[in-house]
């Protein structure tokens, strides 16, 4: 019984680390309409930064600097935020798809770096002995897991409240205006690119924080944790939860992580070992199909966005029919 509760607490902790990455993505995509295909890369930056800052000194990788976990988390958010700032500064003034392609490339390069720069990242062996919060309770597994879970709950709720407040603030309203209608935002005299950049950096920092929290929850990281599959998972969580909706982002993360680990466990139980790899692939196929189906059938997700939303700006730019909107005097695109 205690085992089961402990497992449930561990499941909850992991699910909430995904929820935090999801909240970060929601700032970028849901609130600003920026398309990040390199979530795994930004999560890896956060995870490795925090791991290097907080692990005890070792020969296996850079550091460790044995700093408190809080310092590691702050460093993680700062590093991932800075990386996002750089990527955004380069691509946000270009076509929207270039951001997608560039972030995809960032994830590839970050993963390669984790794998190849052994002196800093530990190479293929990754980084172990990452301190876990409430380490003083490590000899009482039940309490340890429960405390970790409670800590994550408190953190997630705090982040949720902060992001909700931000979304309702003038800053959040400008972001929404920019996403809804680029010309209106420009007419307001707001520098749309600067706002987008801020949102992209903030979202990236939150994703990095999520990556770091996951590293501290599990205690061990390796380059294989940060393959494109992670990006795909986070996207699916947000899309199913409903982009633009912070509560939906959290629910989507818990739901999809439950579905993912639940079906994974079921496959292990049902299929003989020699078929399990294939069955696991079919699991990814199913999630991919679900993602596509949601995008086609219910693009606002299961829980949707509370405020009414029209089309995204990027859609307008490329939609041949709306590019012809009536303006009798101004020059227009046809």
């Amino acid at each position: 019984m205690l085992d089961l509760l402990g497992y449930a607490a561990f499941f909850g902790t992991t699910a909430l680390t995904y929820a935090i990455m999801c909240l970060g993505l929601n700032v970028q995509w849901g609130q600003t309409g920026l398309f990040n295909v390199g979530i795994a890369g930004f999560a890896a930056i956060g995870a490795y930064t925090s791991a290097i800052l907080t692990t005890p000194p070792t020969q296996a990788h850079l550091g460790g600097f044995a700093l408190p976990i809080v310092a590691g988390l702050i460093g993680a958010a700062a590093a991932a935020g800075l990386a996002s700032l750089l990527v955004g500064a380069l691509t946000l003034r270009l076509r929207s798809d270039y951001l997608a392609i560039t972030t995809f490339g960032v994830a590839v390069v970050v993963q390669l770096t984790c794998l190849n720069v052994q002196g800093v990242t530990g190479g293929p062996f990754g980084i172990g002995f990452i301190p876990r919060p409430f380490g003083g309770f490590a000899d009482r597994p039940g309490a340890f897991a429960a405390l970790q879970f409670l800590g994550m709950v408190v953190l997630t709720v705090a982040l949720f409240l902060a992001l909700e407040r931000l979304a309702q603030s003038p800053w959040g309203r400008v972001l929404r205006a920019i996403r809804e209608d680029e010309t209106a935002a420009a007419a307001l005299g707001k520098n749309a690119t600067a706002y987008r950049l801020q949102a992209f950096a903030l979202g990236g920092a939150v994703i990095g924080l999520g990556g770091a929290l996951q590293a501290h929850a599990i205690g061990f990281i390796a380059p294989d944790n940060y393959l494109p599959a992670l990006t795909f998972q986070i996207w699916t969580m947000l899309i199913i939860g409903g982009s633009g909706n912070n509560a939906g982002a959290i629910i989507g993360a818990v739901l999809i992580w439950g579905l993912w680990s639940g079906s994974g466990a079921a496959l292990t139980a049902i299929f003989p070992p020699e078929l399990q790899a294939r069955a696991a692939s079919l699991q990814v196929v199913a999630i991919g199909i679900i993602l596509c189906a949601i995008l086609v059938l219910r693009p606002r997700g299961l829980f949707g966005e509370r405020t009414a939303v029209s089309r995204h700006v990027d859609g307008l730019e490329t939609n041949p029919s709306t590019a012809l909107a009536e303006q009798d005097s101004a020059p227009r695109a046809l």
Partner: peptide
């Protein structure tokens, strides 16, 4: 008319 959704 949702090209960014198409990328996703």
């Amino acid at each position: 008319g949702e090209s960014i959704i198409a990328i996703m």
